[in-house]
Design a protein around this nucleic acid. Structure first.
Lengths: 318, 318
DNA sequence: CGTCTTATACTCAAGGAGAGTATAAATGGC
DNA sequence: GCCATTTATACTCTCCTTGAGTATAAGACG
């Protein structure tokens, strides 16, 4: 208990900051993932955390409802950002962003609200691999990243850069990993290939396709997409995005939309059924060409029954 | 873009708050997981986020080094808490806690620092299932939770409570799930069985064993343990806690210590080796009864080679 | 009535995970 | 030196999961 370095007392008022609450609110409509945006698609719904809010989540709910007229259902925290603006923006230093992921069904946005739903692949065209990479991107992306790698000072640094690019983007016959959304975004940022990087001080060049957002919002969105893509694999969260009744194909299309890649139909059904995630409603889908499909509903009971978690440890019984 | 509800302008200064940085700093020594504590084991290292800090992480590093003399290595963000004090403490409302998980090797804490290492099972005795539940707890825990369930108003609520208890604690022949650390803590808190609950206003009773901490710190610790237990299964983070050279048994003991349960020796080795996580140093362990074991070191190269992530989607090749 | 399209049921092989058995290489007591 | 004990390490075996298909059913439509 000696006295030197612990520096105990909290200097409360002196270090006051502000906290912003930012929402990545997701819905899936007709096989396309959407996110709620404001400012004409240029920002995510957000607002300051205020004294009046009872907790972070209620604060977030208040802001999102005020800005979009859309009540929030499933919500989980994503990440808290506070690194100073990349170009050294002094203001951002005193403000932190606490981001959340929310899941709902698309809904009419009330009139008088500037919010609307935007397709999330508008912001990340390279993340949609369902039909392979968009041809416009396919060549550019690899070429630009190759050039960036080559521009490094040393050969070892060049190799390092390219290896990172190859791993995250699946070049050189590597597997595409749909969860590396944030890593891909960060890499493109570092390579100066997206507008935000140029805005923050990178050398001006032709950027690659993909809509820009204010501040860190596109990074936050990338974090949200990554989290959701990881989560659908071990938790039944897709159902938060589905209507009450749906066919297995609709369910599959939603998963594919989120993951940005196609799944094997028969095996997908096997997976869903063996996990007893759904039950038949008895009804049959009407629209449609082809043989009509049974309608299913989510078995809410599974949430209570299980506390799923994947073990990868070779546990011992004794 | 009509005018009604969006409430755009940021009222910056009016909503100033303070942010605390809190660290769950973990090490494993001789098969026991330790955490760095201050205040004689009653709190986690923490301090306010200040203007001077370039980012949240650097702020955290500064505080931990100041309080413990221990430089921080591997660090990841855990969670940001801001719910008002459970009993309605007004002060806590204006402050949020941003928590981090850090991994290191145990080290002498420099003189003049009030920090020291505490075994993490002192705070969560029920989480150590390596030798089964400690006999003192085995009976009490189930009985107390049963009583709490029974005390609910309606039969359906009673059933609900007991089901939650059974799932999180593995009663009624359910599997123990070592990842549900936070859920177990929250349940015990709600049931009023731990000191913090009584402190925050729950009816005074005999609490169950386990050391208390200030504020939310034990909750934050639970979050950290849960994260680490989940993570060791799909990322090679254990090696952050190991010395440069180790035997496979030492590695196994560390994993068991963290997970709080025993693993199957032969299968554990198979797992480690097939993933090519380690390589022989050529040396042989000296101490020991029994046949001497080979020493291994972590293959740092795997971090660059792979971008592991478990897929559970039945992907399609076409 | 055949064709197209989607739904749904099965099959099959390869790989991984759980649970042991079998040896090997030390130590310590006699 | 020999044997019991302890830990290390190598294999084996079986079952379940997963990837990848094939086969058949049930509608719509010309």
């Amino acid at each position: 208990m000696a006295g030197a370095p612990q520096k105990a007392l909290r200097t409360s008022a002196a270090n006051a900051i502000t906290a912003d609450l930012v929402a990545v609110l997701v819905a899936v409509t007709e096989g396309e993932p959407k996110i709620m945006t404001i400012a004409n698609g240029g920002a995510l719904p957000s607002g300051p955390f205020e004294f009046a809010h009872r907790s972070l989540q209620t604060g977030l709910r208040a802001w999102v409802e005020a800005q979009t007229g859309h009540p929030l259902g499933y919500v989980e925290q994503l990440y808290t950002f506070a690194d100073r603006g990349r170009a050294g923006d002094a203001k951002s230093l005193h403000s932190i962003s606490i981001s959340y992921l929310g899941l709902t069904r698309e809904d009419k946005v009330g009139r008088g609200f500037e919010a609307h739903w935007s397709g999330w692949y508008e912001y990340f065209p390279w993340e949609d691999q369902r039909a392979g990479l968009p041809p416009s991107l396919a060549k550019t992306l690899a070429a630009r990243l190759k050039a960036w790698s080559k521009s490094a000072a040393s050969t070892s640094l060049q190799r390092e850069r390219w290896q990172r690019a190859a791993i995250t983007f699946g070049f050189d016959d590597r597997e595409w990993n749909e969860e590396l959304v944030l890593q891909r975004y960060e890499l493109l940022y570092e390579a100066g290939l997206i507008p935000e990087a140029v805005r923050d001080g990178a050398a001006a060049t032709t950027v690659i396709p993909g809509r820009q957002m204010t501040g860190d919002h596109r990074r936050i969105l990338a974090t949200g997409i990554a989290r959701l893509r990881a989560k659908i694999k071990y938790r039944p969260v897709v159902f938060e995005l589905m209507p009450a009744e749906f066919t297995l194909l609709q369910l599959q299309r939603s998963v594919e939309a989120l993951a940005g890649r196609l799944v094997h139909k028969q095996n997908f059904r096997r997976l869903i059924e063996q996990q007893q995630l759904v039950e038949e409603t008895g009804a049959i889908a009407t629209e449609a060409v082809g043989r009509p499909a049974k309608l299913f509903r989510f078995r809410h009971a599974v949430l209570a029954e299980r506390a799923v978690a994947g073990t990868k440890l070779p546990l011992s019984r004794t």
